[in-house]
Amino acid sequence: MAYALSTIGFDADDTLWQNEHFYRLTEEHFTALLAEHGEKEVLSGKLLEAERRNLKLYGYGIKGFTLSMIETAIEVTEGRVPAAVIERILAAGREMLSHPVETLPHARETLERLAGRYRIVLITKGDLFDQERKLAQSGLGDLFDAVEIVSEKSAATYARLFARHGDGPERSMMVGNSLKSDVVPAIEAGSWGVYVPHELTWAMEHAEEPASAPRFRRLRHLGELADLVESLG
């Protein structure tokens, strides 16, 4: 049975504005600070392990990333990391939290083209204060009918949010750069899942494309979304 699309959810980080780029730059700074304690790849690997361990405690976002950098610094120096290095790690985290927002190509024009014709919902995960800051600075806030900042994205999350802000998942679409968080669980909930790749994607957001799923679509860039939506009727 076909359902007319009524609601479109958008991811935020690396779908509407740059995010992973700043994490990578900070990680490069971190590995340079601790270069005498290991090769870059080794240090990055240990940092990723710390992030993986800490997700359930700290959640997603810059604050958890900063704490994971400090934990990794303590680990690789066997507890002898200088206070000056800890201070530089904290400074790097603060810089990330105050960095200007850089919207991605086609973000505004796509939202403006769809707004008013569909219910537009921002569905993002991460630190509440940081995500609210980025949304405010992006200048895109007025284009959304609702904003949801969640701790995790799952099929249950999308089923609940698309029932709350729309006509249920069957009449909804989720758009994002993460197959693991934005696309696969949305399809599992019964929605359309639209993958818009970003050149940088965090290792923990990787997943296999659900290429055989009838409601999966992959776009080259966000500028193709409005035409796709219109083609679905």
Rank of each mutant, 00 (worst) to 15 (best):
M1V: 15
Y3F: 15
A4K: 12
L5V: 15
S6Q: 13
T7Q: 10
I8L: 14
F10M: 00
D13H: 07
L16C: 03
E20H: 11
F22S: 00
L25W: 05
L25V: 13
E27H: 04
F30M: 10
T31K: 11
A32T: 15
L34F: 03
A35R: 11
E41I: 14
V42E: 11
L43R: 03
S44N: 08
S44T: 12
K46N: 04
E49D: 04
E49C: 07
A50R: 05
A50N: 05
E51N: 08
R52Q: 09
R52M: 11
L55T: 04
L55K: 07
K56Y: 01
L57E: 07
Y58R: 10
G59E: 08
Y60A: 02
K63V: 15
K63D: 08
G64R: 08
T66C: 07
L67M: 07
M69I: 00
I70G: 00
T72H: 01
T77K: 00
T77H: 00
G79C: 11
V81H: 00
A84Q: 13
E87A: 15
I89W: 04
L90S: 05
R94F: 06
E95Y: 12
L97C: 04
S98P: 00
P100C: 11
R108V: 03
E109S: 15
T110K: 05
A115F: 04
A115C: 11
G116I: 13
R119C: 05
I120P: 02
T124S: 15
K125P: 09
G126I: 15
G126Y: 01
D127Q: 03
L128V: 07
F129V: 10
F129T: 13
D130R: 00
D130K: 01
Q131C: 06
E132S: 05
L135V: 06
L135P: 02
A136G: 09
G139P: 06
G139E: 08
G141W: 04
G141A: 05
L143K: 02
F144H: 09
F144T: 10
D145T: 05
D145C: 11
D145N: 10
A146P: 03
A146G: 07
A146K: 02
V147S: 10
E148L: 05
V150H: 08
E152T: 11
K153T: 02
K153N: 04
K153V: 14
A155E: 07
T157R: 04
T157H: 04
F162T: 13
F162C: 13
A163E: 10
H165A: 08
G168R: 06
G168C: 04
E170A: 15
E170T: 13
M173D: 02
M173R: 01
V175I: 10
G176T: 14
S178G: 12
V184A: 12
P185E: 04
P185R: 05
G190Q: 12
G190P: 14
S191G: 12
W192N: 06
V196M: 02
P197V: 01
H198N: 11
E199G: 07
T201E: 13
T201K: 06
E205I: 04
E208H: 14
E208L: 15
E208R: 15
P210F: 01
A213M: 13
A213E: 12
R215T: 15
R218D: 07
R218L: 09
R218W: 11
L219Y: 06
H221I: 10
G223F: 14
E224C: 06
L225Y: 04
A226W: 09
D227G: 05
L228S: 02
L228E: 00
S231T: 14
